[in-house]
Every structure is written in C-alpha cells, then in structure tokens.
Design a protein around this nucleic acid. Structure first.
Lengths: 151, 151
DNA sequence: ATCATTCTGCAACCGGATTGCAAACTCAAG
DNA sequence: CTTGAGTTTGCAATCCGGTTGCAGAATGAT
C-alpha cells in the first residue's frame, strides 16, 4: 500500500502522455487497458460501479477491470464508496476535492435514479469522537432525491 | 412499509412478554423464532450481520433470519448499516438514540477487528446541501481503530 | 375440529466479487 | 534481433452472501 502523494493535475486537459504520467506518479505501470480504464474514470463526473465500467468498456474483461481497480486503489488513485443498494462505487481522487487526508467525503445517493453524486462543496465539520477511537477516514452518504428526478 | 412510531422502552429489563409487546407494537406477529432473533439483536451492543445472527442462533435457518430481518426492517424495528467490507449490518432502533427521524447515524468501523460501533454520543450537525437535493436520511461511517484494538 | 393464513426449513438459485491458470505481453540483458 | 524473467490479460471456474420457490408445520379465528 502506497502512501498517497499530493499532486496537482488539471484533469480537464489531459492527453495520453499526461495519463501515463499520472499512473507512473502513483507507481503504476501504464498499459493500454489501464489507460482506457483511467480515462473512463476521469470522464465520469460521478462515482461508478465496476458494472458500469465493464459495460462501458466492452474490450476489457471484468476480471481485468476488477484487478485494475484494485491496483488503482492500492496505489491511492481511486477510492471506493459503499453506496447502499448500489454496491461499491469507484471514484478518482481529484486534487481539488477529497483524498485520504480529508476526513470526510460527502456523497449523495438518489433513491430514484440510483446515481451517486459527489457533493464537493459540502464540508463536514470535525466531530467530537469518544475517547480512544482513532479515526482514519470518514464517509458520509445521504439518501434523497436529486434535482433531475425531482423535476 | 409502516410508519415508525415512537415508543419508549427500557430494553435492559425486558422479559418475554415485553418482547412480544414490542413486536406487536410494531405490527409484527410474535413467534418463537422472532423472539429469539429479537433477543439476539437486543443483546448485541453493536450492529451485527446476518451471518453473525445465523452463527449465533443455530436453531434457525438463514432464510428465516433473512426474512425476519426484512420484516423487522419493514416495520421500523431495525435499520441497516452499510459497513464497507463488512457488508450490511442490522441494528435495533433504540428509543434513546437514532430513528428514521434523526437524520444522522454515526457509526465507527474498526479496520482491525471489523466490528462496527454505534457512536451514540456523537451528533452530526446539519449540513448545507446544494440547491435541489432533497435529503431523506444520512449515514455517517468512520473507519479507524477501536480502543480495544489499539491497546 | 376445520380451514385459511402465516411462518418455517430446506434446497436451489442468483449475481457480483474473486481467483487459478495458461497465453500474451513487456522490457531489459545478452 | 533473441532470450527469458516478470507482469498483465482473458477465460472459465469458483466462491459466497443474499434471495426465492416450495411444501410441510404452526397459528389463530370460526
């Protein structure tokens, strides 16, 4: 397990070379498949499931998607969100939002369309935990109805 | 799905009659098996998995445990916690702590012993959600190391 | 006692996560 | 280039927790 290192990338303007660099910066060898999966993660504004990924990328076997996501996770490139009914979802760490060093990752789960949104603007204040509990990281998930489904 | 009704029970001193009453208060017919499962839930100071329950109660088939937990859930007697690696966990609603009308249920997941604790004393302040997101309920899970495992 | 309803155990099923393995690929050294 | 060790990949099989179908048992009102 690698320690996460803080980089500052502008994901919007990344080309293939930048993506290879991103992988290498995290100690991951860049392969064609990994670049495809990385791109898919990057293009998604929301956390997505392994299912979503394997559906979207027909050319890569699900076992490889699984192992790639595990690798990305081990190397601190993505993190997982446990989203109730939707199962585990994967999301790229983005330099401008959350990382392992931010305690809190607020997410919104729409009970209608089942999408999960990253609530980037919302910060969760420090809580006063009981004595003796060492906090590593927190995750915060709210269920509700998203603007699209409400309309 | 029943609306949850607020009762005030003293779980510590409940006998069999009280337990039957508790079930009936929630619109659930009291059967021998359901009382056993209810007791097990009540005796657990922490949320537990279906696996835990079926292991603990050898006399009841897992399908019945499953259906009983579903029934309890539908009738607002227990709620579920999605605890990352541990899968879903079940916990009795206790009159003195959380219920569907409390937005937030903070829980602590120990990454060493894999237990999940209910952080009763900790309240999560209201957050300022973005426009358009209708909040139904939130869940808050922190990962870390519990006092026992730290020692 | 009778009968409709509900509950229960068993066995089977399901689907997502995970793994074993052999082939394909990578890349540095000869 | 060729070789060979190490890594990655696809396929198929497996695992496992959750879930369901069904027939027999228990329940409770009449």
């Amino acid at each position: 397990m690698h320690l996460r290192i803080e980089f500052s990338y502008n994901f919007a303007i990344m080309n293939n070379n930048d993506l290879e660099q991103l992988l290498q910066d995290h100690g991951i060898k860049a392969t064609a498949n990994r670049l495809i999966i990385l791109k898919a993660l990057m293009n998604s504004s929301r956390p997505i499931t392994m299912q979503d990924l394997t559906d979207e990328i027909e050319s890569i076997d699900k076992s490889n998607v699984f192992r790639t996501l595990s690798t990305f996770r081990e190397h601190g490139l993505v993190h997982v969100i446990e989203a109730c009914d939707e199962g585990v979802m994967y999301e790229l760490y983005r330099s401008d939002s959350n990382g392992p060093h931010n305690d809190i990752h607020p997410h919104f789960h729409c009970v209608v369309c089942h999408k999960v949104f990253c609530l980037k603007g919302v910060t969760v204040p420090k809580l006063n935990y009981p004595e003796g509990f060492d906090i590593l990281e927190g995750s915060f998930l709210v269920n509700g109805i998203c603007p699209e489904c409400k309309a």
